[in-house]
């Protein structure tokens, strides 16, 4: 296997006030993967990204980007990185085209209008290229930030909470772009606290909690071991006990027999398991007036995770 694109060893960060944001992080990001960093607010996700990108000085430890130290060889390290920050920040009065071109120049790349055009079109910003940033909506501004990060053709793209407060359309466009980038060999690291997002996009998931990396695992493994789903059928007639025909299913009665609850792994959804179950319920002569499903949230996964590992 080739050397990791990002190699973090023993990284700590203690802020001036004494707050320990990172407590010895070791992490290797594989070349070309999509890696999701999960964690509650204040866990250290943004600090970790900020150290790698050069926005925050590390207290100890080291970070290599494509083999280049972020401090001793910062030019080589940073020129490989594109960062989309969490907060919408922009030079309000310049135009979309100018600000994206500025980003490319700032990273020392020669002018390339064709590349800028490609990026703007990918993000549906082409029509808005002459607009001043102050006139754009929040979603559009986020697109601009992504375009800025892609302007210098980075090998690694950091997306810090990319879909916080973003509408469905932008989210779809964004994942489209991310997939395209991945295909062209760009490594993508995103932070999020939405499990669905990590589930949909990432190949590997790292969970960070109170400045420590609690685990790093392939998504499949993580979802199978930790994700739980629950289907609840609200029955027309209450049942006193489970019918014989359904005994082989791990079903439970709830709400004084008014509800039938089916719990299953997040990993084996689809595959017709639910349809089969509903068929059997119907065949057993049980009618229901409503149903709902719920998925364990990251919050719950965390609780489980933290319980398990401590």
């Amino acid at each position: 296997m080739s050397a990791p694109i990002i190699d973090v060893k023993g990284l700590t960060k203690v802020y001036n006030g004494g707050f320990e944001a990172l407590k010895g992080i070791d992490l290797e990001i594989r070349r070309g993967e999509i890696f999701a960093l999960l964690g509650p607010n204040g866990a250290g996700k943004t600090t970790l990204i900020s150290v790698i990108c050069g926005l925050v000085n590390p207290s100890s430890g080291r970070v290599l980007v494509d083999g280049h130290d972020i401090l001793d060889d910062f030019r080589a390290a940073r020129s490989r990185i594109g960062l989309v920050p969490q907060e919408l920040t922009s030079e309000a009065f310049s135009t979309v085209w100018d600000t994206v071109s500025f980003s490319r120049g700032l990273f020392g790349k020669p002018k390339d209008p064709a590349h800028i055009e490609k990026v703007l079109r990918q993000l549906s910003l082409w029509e808005k290229r002459k607009n001043r940033l102050i006139t754009l909506s929040g979603g559009m501004k986020r697109r601009v930030l992504i375009a800025k990060a892609l302007a210098h053709e980075p090998q690694v793209l950091f997306l810090d909470e990319p879909t916080a407060g973003v509408d469905v359309e932008l989210r779809r466009d964004m994942w489209e772009v991310v997939r395209g980038l991945r295909q062209s060999g760009v490594t993508i690291i995103l932070t999020t606290h939405y499990i669905e997002e990590a589930e949909e996009m990432a190949e590997r998931i790292g969970v960070i909690r109170a400045g420590e990396l609690v685990l790093v695992e392939d998504k499949q493994t993580l979802m199978a071991s930790l994700g739980r789903k629950e289907l609840t059928l609200h029955l027309r007639e209450p049942l006193s006990q489970l019918p014989e025909a359904l005994a082989h299913r791990s079903l439970t009665l709830a709400d004084d027999g008014h509800a039938l609850v089916y719990r299953y792994d997040g990993a084996d959804d689809g595959e017709g398991a639910i349809a089969d179950l509903l068929g059997e319920v119907d065949a057993a002569g049980i009618t229901f007036k409503d149903l709902h499903t719920r998925q364990s949230s990251l919050e719950e996964i965390f609780v489980n995770l933290v319980k398990e590992r401590t």
Binding site: F74, F107, K148
Partner: peptide
Amino acid sequence: YEILSAPI
């Protein structure tokens, strides 16, 4: 942020 993260 952009200036600080740039290779300059």
